[in-house]
């Protein structure tokens, strides 16, 4: 789901920054209001978990691989805005240090893997939280929904930006990106679901403590 530099048209890039920057500003304020010496360890560790879980590439048939993101875990344990900012920071490090995902595309990537995953996971969890497997289901669908957003942004590129019959940017359209991207994340969602379920179950007893500190 990490869209690389050069994959999106300049107008897509500009639009994405215009739309996502206000979300970053608001989310950043939310993070700052909760960030102090007491909350650093837990917020840092949860963000680090997101970074590390994204390093577990899982192969699936067909020659591709994918990974969990960890946004829903932070969203349901702490706050979806903080989850969004934490994942955005992880994406920034991945893009600048490791070349994983682009810098021009960071607003789109932060929107899909950060914002959409965090909030969809948060609201799905809210609807079904009395059930034992709510974290699994919330994590699962958050990743699938996020992959749909990525598929849409990639898939519109060859529809709008073509030169001499050749796509200028990402070359496969929605008919390909949606089945491939969402289809593969129907499997990777299982990893997100298991990760969210296990870690949430381990940490939820002390959940209240985070809100108090």
């Amino acid at each position: 789901m990490h869209i690389a530099d050069g994959y999106l048209s300049p107008s897509t890039v500009v639009t994405s920054f215009v739309l996502v920057t206000p979300l970053w500003i608001y989310g950043f304020k939310r993070l700052k209001s909760k960030l102090d010496e007491k909350t650093i360890p837990i917020l840092g560790a949860l963000s680090a978990l997101s970074f590390v879980i994204m390093m577990f590439n899982i192969p699936i048939p067909g020659g591709t691989s994918g990974h969990a993101v960890g946004a829903t875990l932070i969203a349901i344990l702490i706050d979806p805005w903080i989850a969004f900012i934490s994942v955005s920071l992880v994406l920034l490090i991945q893009a600048t240090v490791f070349g994983d995902g682009g810098i021009s595309t960071i607003a789109v990537n932060a929107f899909s893997m950060g914002f959409v995953a965090s909030f969809s996971g948060y609201y799905i969890f809210g609807l079904i939280k009395k059930y034992k497997f709510a974290p699994f289901i919330a994590g699962y669908f958050s990743l699938v929904i996020a992959s749909f957003v990525t598929a849409c942004v990639l898939g519109i590129q060859p529809i709008f930006w073509v030169q001499n019959g050749h796509p200028l940017y990402f070359p496969f359209d929605l008919k390909v990106t949606i089945p491939m991207m969402v289809g593969s994340h129907l499997l990777f969602g299982i990893a997100e679901g298991i990760f969210t379920q296990i870690i949430y179950t381990l940490l939820k007893k002390e959940k209240r403590a985070v809100y108090e500190i």
């Binding site: 690389a4 530099d5 050069g6 994959y7 999106l8 048209s9 390093m55 893009a95 600048t96 240090v97 490791f98 070349g99 994983d100 682009g102 810098i103 021009s104 930006w161 030169q163 050749h166 796509p167 200028l168 940017y169 990402f170 070359p171």
Partner: peptide
Amino acid sequence: GYIPKGISTHIGLKPLLPDY
């Protein structure tokens, strides 16, 4: 049979540790 122009010509930062 070709590399899309935007993908082949983009200017990007050279990462410190590409692909970890």
